[in-house]
């Protein structure tokens, strides 16, 4: 962006110029996406309203839904069994639409810690959690997670003993993965809503562990 003009006309130039979104170069892929959307609407494949609804639906998927699902699995063994079988069907059974792309859960245990990556692109259980964080799409996370997962974990503040198996899942294909963390100790008296507050997005990717409310 440029901001060339005569500096003698008396308004405040100490303010930083904030670019509008159109001021960055329109990339090839943005042009292609815009053109494709317009053509499909023109051809009557879907309407602008359908497209808007779909975007709105995707934007309504958040890690909070994932946390709700995990808290239910911690408190309801039948639901947990269903979740381990098929995440999409299990979430539908409690009124959460997690989309058509198959999601599978991997369960953390004292012996095995799971973490998720997509080395080839940025596959992520968007149908349940919404868009991934930017770091998940970075080349550094994607390449280092399979090469030195424990270094990545430690950068997220997560240290695991050497005799725990760190198992990285590379979502290269048609399945997406969701980590089912271990329920922290000291949470026996907590209800589902309070348990859900312990589960963050990073726990569901497997780079972090739920907070232990006892602090131990």
């Amino acid at each position: 962006m440029t901001h060339d003009h005569d500096h003698s006309h008396g308004h405040d130039h100490d303010q930083t110029f904030q670019p509008d979104i159109e001021d960055s170069p329109f990339t090839h892929h943005q042009v292609m996406a815009e053109a494709l959307g317009e053509l499909l609407i023109e051809k009557g494949v879907f309407t602008a309203d359908d497209l808007r609804r779909q975007i709105e639906h995707l934007d309504s998927r958040t890690p909070a839904l994932g946390a709700e699902v995990i808290a239910r699995a911690w408190t309801d063994p039948d639901f947990k069994a269903k979740l381990m079988e098929n995440v999409n069907e299990a979430t539908a059974s409690i009124g959460i639409d997690s989309g058509d792309i198959p999601i599978r859960a991997v369960e953390n245990t004292p012996e095995t810690h799971h973490m998720i990556v997509c080395t080839l692109c940025s596959c992520y259980p968007r149908g349940l959690l919404g868009p991934p964080p930017d770091w998940y799409k970075s080349r550094a996370y994607r390449s280092r997670t399979v090469r030195e997962p424990r270094a990545i974990l430690s950068e997220f503040g997560t240290t695991l003993p050497d005799d725990v198996e760190v198992r990285v899942h590379d979502s290269t294909a048609d399945l997406r993965y969701l980590v089912l963390p271990m329920r922290p100790r000291g949470t026996d008296g907590m209800d589902e809503a309070d348990l859900a507050k312990l589960v963050t997005r990073d726990c569901l990717i497997g780079v972090s562990l739920p907070d232990n409310p006892g602090g131990v």
Partner: peptide, 19 residues
């Protein structure tokens, strides 16, 4: 088996999906 000089835990694994 993936990395000759792997520095993590001895039991660590990676699962990859293949057609």
């Amino acid at each position: 088996d993936l990395w000759a000089d792997y520095q993590g835990g001895p039991k660590d694994t990676t699962v990859v999906d293949f057609y």
